[in-house]
Nucleic acid binder design. Structure first.
Lengths: 354, 354
DNA sequence: GCACATTTGGAGAGCGCTCTCCGATCGATC
DNA sequence: GATCGATCGGAGAGCGCTCTCCAAATGTGC
């Protein structure tokens, strides 16, 4: 094997070149090099060149840590996954990461952060002690701001963050009103769209597979569905709760079927559960959409690959995450910015299942 | 709304308490507080208590930045996604993040890092300039080490990292031999298992949908498949390449079908493409597995929810990522550690598609 | 009681950077 | 040519922490 020395540095022992070294090579002071590198004030163009040349020759790279220490800026944003009780090897967390939800959020976030030259640091907090430590670190400038994915129904983190003065944006509204920035989807509207589509195509006996009733998004989808079915004269509709996993959707579909065998339409609160429901329906010998129509929620990749492909409520998660990142960046830039929220409108994506 | 002051600090203006402040409150020197907090040397138990008390009263949280500056340790590991030519709003990246692959890796990584109190920072590099900057930052102690997900077939990053002396572990072997730690799957074996299963269940005309031939994992799966079919007397087998997305799998299946209409078994190099293949097969009126048997690769969530559920080669990605994290942590602890690699053996998961 | 080894706490020098002064330099103006 | 204002570069003080000295305090053996 052949190793060509691709990096021809001017190594000073194991020490990396510092501003001081560059200054010496360029024959100027540390301050001048700093000014050139940060593009501050007009430095004599000639010196400017000399300095950059010295930077190139020494292979200098600014030390972020040292810089952050004085500027109080890290160029890092934390993505916090706040969970109520997740312990070290909790399988829940790994399930969460494998869920397309997480990846879509990261993708949306990165599309904006990358351009801004900001890096994303992943943090999980599972206990109140962890939350406290996190807020402490954050106030200390561990990151310039945070994007919060709050899983528990009621979570002290959003409040702790605002009280600590940490720039933060939530994806999904907080369960209790807290003056915090957030980006959310009009979940009620989404559920309404789904219900009306089901009713519109002639379903007479409809039900719903919901998520856990205490998380805000889930709650809103339930109430939106209830309200709109009631409006159309369906006094009572069967609702069974799952926990957003495929297996739970399958189980929920079974109990729904047992409860109301004459079911002809189901709104499922996310695509993953809808895929599970499809499986249960096939087992029960019902055709989709002929016997039972299914409307999912999210428009995740699972919706396209399902058999039949799912008609679903589109949740523009990437766009929302990108907006959250923009909001956070703006807030970091302007500490006076007032808490604001952006609500996205869902749309129905028609495929085969309803 | 009611805001109860949940954090009763002793605020010194906007300044957060520093070691100095704690020292003053405790009536000792800065050094002593530092020693107590870091548990170094035996400090008089009585002072010990006084110091912790002062820490509590002031609400002191150590400033990581300042600490890192002197210790050269950050408590951060970077997850680098090295891409050849990804630009700012490249849709490819968002597709990559939404792929279960990414989430599984993150989940596996976090399961180990979390316990170690290490945070994960996400980095994307798309250009050689970006790579250079990254290595520079890394050498400067921006992170203690890196986990590399190298997408391009031939990538200078692994070598740059080893030459720069940055602790690094790759997930998936490097395309060219570089003395770097890595964790990989025995891809050839996986392909062999798939081929033999197909042959074993009586398939006579088998083909393959592969990934891009220049990425190592993909290459190995192709050669494993070729070798084992040849061994069983199939001199030539049709292989069409996709790019690991569902759509590409669908397209590949169509051309495979056009090329060899009498096909009765296909090995698909990942589950996502296999789901696409299933769609194409259904369109073509072929039953799976009766007319055409399908074996996927990965055992991702897509395999379970596919119709029919995929028989697939299990890729224990979470375990591999966790192992990579452990390896990295060990390497960070012991800089003398020699580059080593861990190869996982794939297994076949039997479901309905073959 | 004294010489000695052994703890234990404090002073202070940095880690690598930014940024505020301030003095030096320069060109323009009368 | 002297004076003023503007501009530009350097010195040096920190940012908050760790860690190496050292001095003081304590304990040990004869």
């Amino acid at each position: 094997m052949c190793y060509n020395v691709s990096m021809q540095r001017v190594p000073v022992g194991e020490r990396l070149p510092t501003l001081e070294d560059v200054a010496r090579v360029a024959g100027v002071s540390r301050a001048t090099v700093s000014r050139v590198i940060n593009g501050i004030r007009n430095v004599d163009p000639q010196l400017h060149e000399v300095v950059w040349d010295a930077v190139g020759r020494t292979g200098y790279v600014p030390n972020r840590m040292a810089r952050s220490l004085v500027t109080r800026r890290t160029g890092t944003v934390a993505l916090v996954v706040s969970d109520s009780e997740s312990h070290d090897d909790d399988p829940f967390m790994s399930r969460f990461f494998a869920d397309p939800y997480f990846g879509r959020v990261v993708g949306g976030l990165m599309s904006v952060l990358r351009q801004a030259g900001v890096q994303l640091a992943l943090q999980i907090v599972g206990s109140d002690d962890g939350r406290r430590r996190l807020v402490g670190d954050l106030r200390n400038g561990q990151a310039d701001g945070v994007i919060v994915l709050s899983l528990p129904a009621v979570d002290a983190l959003p409040r702790m963050l605002t009280e600590g003065g940490v720039p933060a944006v939530m994806i999904g509204r907080p369960a209790e009103p807290v003056p915090i920035n957030y980006v959310d989807l009009a979940n009620e509207t989404g559920a309404t769209i789904a219900a009306e589509h089901l009713l519109g195509r002639g379903c007479r006996r409809i039900g719903m597979i919901s998520g856990p009733a205490d998380v805000p998004a889930s709650h809103d989808r339930i109430s939106g569905f209830r309200r709109s079915t009631a409006k159309h004269g369906h006094g009572w509709v069967p609702i069974v709760a799952g926990n957003f996993t495929q297996e739970s959707g399958e189980a929920a579909m079974r109990s729904l079927l047992a409860e109301s065998p004459d079911l002809d339409g189901v709104f499922v609160a996310n695509d993953l559960m809808a895929v599970g429901a499809l499986l249960a329906l096939r087992d029960a010998g019902r055709r989709v959409p002929e016997d039972v129509a299914i409307v999912g929620f999210d428009d995740s990749s699972a919706a396209v690959s399902a058999a039949p492909p799912l008609t679903t409520v589109r949740h523009p998660l990437e766009d929302m995450a990108a907006e959250a990142a923009r909001l956070l960046l703006a807030r970091i830039e302007d500490p006076e910015m007032r808490a604001s929220s952006v609500i996205y409108e869902p749309t129905l994506v028609l495929r085969k299942s309803a």
